[in-house]
């Protein structure tokens, strides 16, 4: 069942997960340029941990509030709510320059992890697979998750395509932007909100580690290979999509866990950029 012919025949198995992987790869690769340049690489870990915490809170208060956490749409909605809120707070923290960005992200991650453990020790009886509510496995992507990912990707990319100049200016030269009278806080908020929106549906489709890897590795590779920002963004998105698709296909042919193979392929993309950087020295 591992040959190319068998792969083509089994289209029904791969069409949804592969499409989800490509969308997530391109989306995360694109946003990754901001994440890497602003040194907040652990943002996906922190935001998905906040999503977990939010879901635990939802389960604990489920009966009181009358929400059905068993429903995938409710799970995703809660995850997105906590992720966007967390992202906006991190953005404020970063804008205030009180802490290095990575330190704030790391603290949010660890505190959310600790709080999740504390909160989930409250429910002893009902069995819940918390992980499965936040993270997918890149192999079985329900149609609902794919549609949510595609829809949110469109919502995220719209402001990025319409207001590229403002977002780039504020993100990479906030001081000058502020001096020129631009509403830097607003644009910064938009940037973080899009991160907070993009990460939960991606994590739910392809899993934790691939999300983290696709948010950091393709952008790093693109930064090593290209010099001008428009090309960096395009290359990062392309590398992300290719890494996700090639990872999926390789995991089929050589029978390895899918998420891990995507991470490995994304890692390989650092090699040509690394060599080029060494040669340029």
């Amino acid at each position: 069942m591992s040959g190319f012919g068998a792969f083509l025949e089994a289209r029904e198995i791969w069409q949804d997960p592969l499409l989800a992987a490509v969308i997530a790869g391109a989306l995360l690769g694109f946003l990754g340029v901001y994440v890497v340049l602003r040194r907040t690489v652990f943002v996906s870990a922190a935001l998905t941990q906040l999503s977990t915490l939010g879901l635990i809170a939802a389960i604990v208060t489920e009966e009181r509030l009358g929400v059905a956490v068993e429903r995938p749409s409710v799970q995703l909605a809660v995850a997105v709510l906590f992720s966007v809120t967390g992202a906006l707070l991190l953005g404020r923290l970063h804008a205030g320059r009180r802490l290095p960005a990575e330190a704030g992200v790391g603290m949010a991650w660890v505190l959310a992890g600790a709080a999740a453990i504390l909160a989930s020790s409250r429910f002893v009886h009902a069995a819940h697979d918390m992980d499965a509510m936040v993270f997918g496995n890149a192999v079985a992507v329900p149609l609902g998750d794919l549609l949510a990912l595609a829809g949110l990707a469109a919502v995220v990319l719209a402001p990025h395509l319409l207001f590229t100049k403002e977002l780039v200016f504020v993100a990479f030269d906030g001081e000058t932007a502020r001096a020129m009278g631009m509403p830097a806080g607003l644009w910064n908020g938009v940037l973080y909100a899009t991160l907070g929106l993009a990460i939960p549906p991606a994590a739910r489709a392809i899993g934790a580690l691939p999300t983290f890897a696709l948010l950091t590795l393709p952008a790093s590779a693109a930064l090593l290979l290209a010099g001008r920002l428009p090309r960096i963004f395009a290359l990062a998105a392309a590398l992300g999509a290719v890494a996700a698709a090639a990872g999926y296909f390789l995991s089929w042919t050589i029978q390895l866990p899918t998420g891990a193979t995507m991470v490995a392929v994304a890692g390989l993309f650092l090699v040509p950029g690394g060599v080029a950087a060494l040669l340029r020295r």
Binding site: G113, A114, A116, I117, L118, S120, S121, F123, V124, A127, H128, M130
Partner: peptide
Amino acid sequence: RPPQGRAYL
């Protein structure tokens, strides 16, 4: 350590 999972602090 919440009993139902592998996570702990």
